[in-house]
Design a protein around this nucleic acid. Structure first.
Lengths: 165, 165
DNA sequence: TATTGTTATACTCTATAACTATA
DNA sequence: TATAGTTATAGAGTATAACAATA
């Protein structure tokens, strides 16, 4: 896949008409980047620990916040109720997560890492943190700060576009 | 889904052990961002024009470079030969792309947009360019330049990690 | 009636490999 | 032998909706 600078929106309409270049199209470049970066993390949780992305996200949240409501984890991890249900079924089957009815509201479930789940979490997190650090090590502090701002701004614009259809 | 600053890699190991926070994890945040941004573009080519992502990418390349080899388009669009074969079958079926054996090397195919394909391309590109411009309008020129650098640097680091396993 | 979660179903995608044809 | 592309097949993931239990 090619690499190229971002389009800047400064061309005239006439120029743009024949100048649409996927390689310079920001949404495409972001998708390619995110895929490649995600793949470096997935190498850890998929290849070494046989979790899929949804299962890993749930494990990650539960490792940092014990006794969470299933609904809350789903919201935080960006999973719908079906993805959540399937991922949890697998995590419970392999005894990484315990699922208990919420005593406050028995429609919901309360989740907790098992001892094994906690051990796996403690094993995986240093590995993925090391990978994140390796990725970020190529950036200057200013660039890291910029990336933070850029992500926030683009997410807001994307949310606006989505809302407008 | 939550928003939060990126981790910076400055914490001690002891701090990090209990501080892994998916919401601040750069690979996760990039994945969420790319999904949201891609969705705003997909609203155009999926919802309004019934193309999937692979078909859209092929159309986009062919719109800008006529008479391309199928293999070259696949490489540029980041598609493997099976994705390419399926997407092309559909594009040919709906008469957006013509597929002809390469006269130089009859194992390969040469692709071209049909008149209808060209018309669709001319219809879609202004819409997706407008969306890209809306997204980028929230960024300063410095941030747009930073994003360019950041994408290039992170892709290089990701490629390094991938190569090492 | 609304919410949490499960199950059913069909559909789409993906990954692997076998296969054809050309070189 | 290697390459471009297709076909076959099974597995994974996705989307929709019907359903049960609880509120």
């Amino acid at each position: 896949m090619d690499s190229a600078p971002l389009t800047t929106g400064t061309g005239t309409t006439a120029e743009r008409k024949t100048a649409f270049d996927l390689a310079r199209f920001m949404p495409y470049r972001l998708a390619v980047l995110a895929d490649e970066v995600s793949a470096t993390i997935a190498q850890v949780y998929v290849d070494r620990f046989d979790l899929n992305r949804d299962q890993w996200r749930i494990l990650a949240w539960l490792g940092n916040h014990r006794d969470m409501q299933a609904k809350e984890v789903a919201r935080l991890a960006g999973l719908d109720k079906m993805q959540m249900s399937r991922a949890l079924a697998r995590l419970e089957e392999v005894k990484l997560v315990s699922i208990k009815p919420d005593t406050q509201d028995r429609r919901g479930n309360v989740l907790q890492l098992t001892k094994q789940g906690r051990a796996l979490y403690e094993k995986i997190t240093p590995l993925v943190i090391a990978r994140e650090e390796y990725l970020l090590a190529s950036l200057t502090p200013d660039e890291i700060a910029s990336l933070d701002t850029i992500i926030a701004k683009l997410r807001r614009q994307a949310a606006d576009l989505k809302a407008r259809g």
